[in-house]
Design a binder for these strands. Structure first.
Lengths: 194, 194
DNA sequence: TAGATTGTTAATCGATTAACAATC
DNA sequence: TAGATTGTTAATCGATTAACAATC
């Protein structure tokens, strides 16, 4: 979250930030000091923190200062949405292929990509290094695909299917549970008073 | 998360759950007992918790046992994706309209919906009650639209734009930050060892 | 009755907040 | 030097875990 605000500040040519950082991010001043301390405390007293320095530091911490190549499995609307938006919203993450099971989809265009068959995954991956697989396919197919992708060496999974993937522990999975988020909205709306 | 697993268990015709609930959800047995206790402790000793009863209870707690009507603002891939998937993935949430700024989009079909102009929002909302607005539009437009929607009475916002919406405090906003989730994946992959 | 499992309180742990010294 | 702000430790708070009594 800090990263998003730092990029915004930098875009506005603000090079130092201190007290206003708290109200901007909605954190307490104490929380920010503690976090900056844990990040390695690179501020200057009575001046604040250097925006570009802090941004770079967080970039490095997150590991997004190095490139990540991704493939998208599932060329539905969600997959297409990510294929379109990601490259220019998230520097360092590049989509290098889009795949689908469905013969109707194969061969169609998604942005600059021609959708390939999941049958061609193995040969594709052996030729192009892939860091992350984006799973935007039906829940029923996700586990089998993830297993197959793990077998050919992929270790990072960005999973949009509402299932808990079972993979060896050197795999990293991050789930996006849109259902949870909508359910939380309902919950908060019901309990506004408290 | 419990809710998702309970639906799955019910689908498999499993009517009681106890110890296996922990491994299924990845929680400790202690955590589950504590949570069930806070939910109102409706289990039977030496038998476990009733799956349908617990599912219903959580549904009520989340407020998803009553209907929610939604409109989608932004008919890009993400908006389309939600328009398509939501109705049959999340019972009780129904999309009743899709809107867009872009004249190219207006009049096109998204599932069963014809995309309407955002100019027609006010008159549409005065005729159809809307609980939740889904903001799948560019960050630059999100704040203005949210303000407009608030003015005509909408209080629930499911926001996919990477901005912090500023609205009166009787509005409820839940943000979906896909960027964060991808950045976390990168972070975890970098720090597998620790 | 014995076994299994839940209900409930207490103990532990980690994260947030407060306080104040250090320093630009 | 005075003012502002960060660095760092201690105190507080809340959430998770442990323990064991209650009961089906």
């Amino acid at each position: 979250m800090y990263y998003r605000h730092l990029k915004q500040l930098e875009h506005n040519k603000k090079w130092f930030v201190s007290s206003e950082f708290a109200e901007l991010t909605g954190q307490s001043a104490s929380q920010i000091r503690q976090d900056m301390f844990l990040f390695g405390g690179k501020g200057k007293q009575s001046l604040g923190y250097s925006v570009p320095e802090l941004r770079q530091h967080i970039e490095h911490l997150l590991g997004i200062d190095r490139p990540h190549s991704m493939i998208i499995i599932g060329a539905g609307n969600l997959g297409c949405s990510i294929a379109h938006c990601l490259p220019y919203q998230q520097k360092g993450f590049s989509v290098i292929g889009v795949f689908d099971f469905n013969p109707c989809k194969i061969g169609s265009k998604v942005g600059d990509f021609t959708v390939k068959s999941t049958d061609d995954l193995d040969s594709f991956i052996s030729q192009h290094p892939v860091d992350i697989a984006v799973l935007t396919l039906p829940a029923s197919d996700a586990q089998a695909l993830a297993k197959q992708l793990y077998a050919v060496g992929i270790r990072g999974f960005w999973n949009f299917a509402p299932v808990d993937l079972q993979l060896a522990e050197d795999a990293t999975v991050v789930d996006v549970h849109l259902e949870y988020s909508l359910e939380m909205l309902s919950y908060y709306m019901c309990h506004m008073d408290t």
